[in-house]
């Protein structure tokens, strides 16, 4: 369990994290979502005692991070794949971490095996690919067999196989009863892994909700219909008490999941349908609407900067 209370971080005039309060509970994967620059990494660094909060407090299983004697056994973190000295081998990197927490050497071999780096254990970390570096970082997080795991953008830059591996790993860790806290700026990624969502924008808490609730409230479903006889269909639907709207491109839309009923009505009245498809507004759209007011770096539409001419 991680408890964040009124956490605030100010850099000069800029408020990077603004009175964040939330809890991360065990046994589930909690997604920490926000656009770039929302303060996710700053929050995670404060959770780990790396950055000093301007105000507020973080408790790891009831204790402050700096009071943890052997923190790797309580919380394992993957901050970024870069937290490794490139000149050191994977084995020695993990060994020095293990020694500082009194973790037996045998555990180093175990985690190397778990992440599939045994074969390259003696190779220098700077020769590692992005995916191997990420695996080494995760090996470090798993080293103390901690009850809490924290991953900052773990799938960034990974190939599909690596992404798949990390998703399954996070789910299995949570299934063992551990607390898993993972940040991302991709709603679609969270939808696949997280059970609970904490959404922030410009350092402020925007939402703290279960994934199921978020989907239920935000994935608006409707039925799209194309027909050469729209007027007749509208009348038929109206008679049956179904409200339909004309959408662009000669299509009709009906709120809710009534595709079967519409199909039956059309058949009954011998109306030709070219399309009858249930649709869902994407979670990505819902996320973008939620954070629209708090995105720090807006792109200027889709047009390139003026003044650029070919040749």
């Amino acid at each position: 369990m991680i408890e964040v209370e009124g956490l605030t971080k100010r850099y000069g005039a800029k408020l990077a994290v603004d009175r964040l309060t939330f809890r991360v509970r065990p046994g589930i994967v909690t997604g920490f979502l926000g656009p770039n620059g929302a303060g996710k990494s700053t929050t995670m660094r404060m959770m780990l005692g790396l950055d000093r909060p301007t105000a507020g407090d973080v408790r790891i299983d009831g204790r402050r991070y700096e009071n943890l004697q052997d923190p790797l056994k309580y919380i394992g973190a993957l901050l970024d794949a870069k937290g490794v000295h490139g000149g050191r081998s994977a084995f020695h990197h993990l060994l020095c971490l293990a020694q500082s927490n009194g973790i037996p050497k045998s555990r180093v071999h175990e985690v190397l095996h778990a992440v599939g780096l045994t074969a390259v254990a003696r190779r220098k970390a700077k020769g590692f690919s992005l995916g191997m570096g990420q695996r080494l970082g995760i090996a470090g997080a798993l080293l103390g067999d901690p009850r809490i795991l924290m991953f900052d953008e773990p799938v960034n830059g990974l190939d599909p196989e690596g992404i798949h591996w990390i998703r399954n790993l996070m789910k299995s860790l949570a299934a063992q009863g551990r607390t898993v806290f993972v940040s991302s700026h991709l709603m679609s990624e969270m939808a696949l892994t997280a059970d609970h969502l904490v959404v922030i924008g410009q350092g402020r808490l925007l939402a703290d909700t279960s994934m199921a609730d978020f989907i239920q409230h935000n994935s608006h479903s409707y039925v799209r219909i194309r027909t050469p006889q729209p007027e007749r269909l509208l009348d038929v639907l109206d008679e049956a008490g179904i409200k339909a709207f004309r959408a662009g491109g000669g299509t009709l839309e009906v709120d809710g999941g009534k595709a079967e009923r519409i199909g039956e009505l059309a058949a009954e009245h011998r109306i030709v349908l070219h399309e009858l498809s249930p649709q869902q507004a994407s979670l990505e759209e819902a996320f973008m609407r939620l954070t629209a007011g708090s995105v720090e770096y807006h792109a200027q539409g889709g047009t390139p900067p003026t003044g650029w001419k070919k040749g």
């Binding site: 369990m1 509970r25 065990p26 046994g27 589930i28 004697q69 052997d70 056994k73 500082s100 927490n101 009194g102 973790i103 037996p104 555990r107 103390g144 067999d145 901690p146 009850r147 063992q176 009863g177 551990r178």
Partner: peptide, 17 residues
């Protein structure tokens, strides 16, 4: 306020570093 799920306990002993 939901009850926390089953918590994981590691076999690695806790030491005072």
């Amino acid at each position: 306020q939901a009850a926390p799920g089953p918590s994981y306990t590691s076999p690695i002993p806790i030491v005072r570093t």
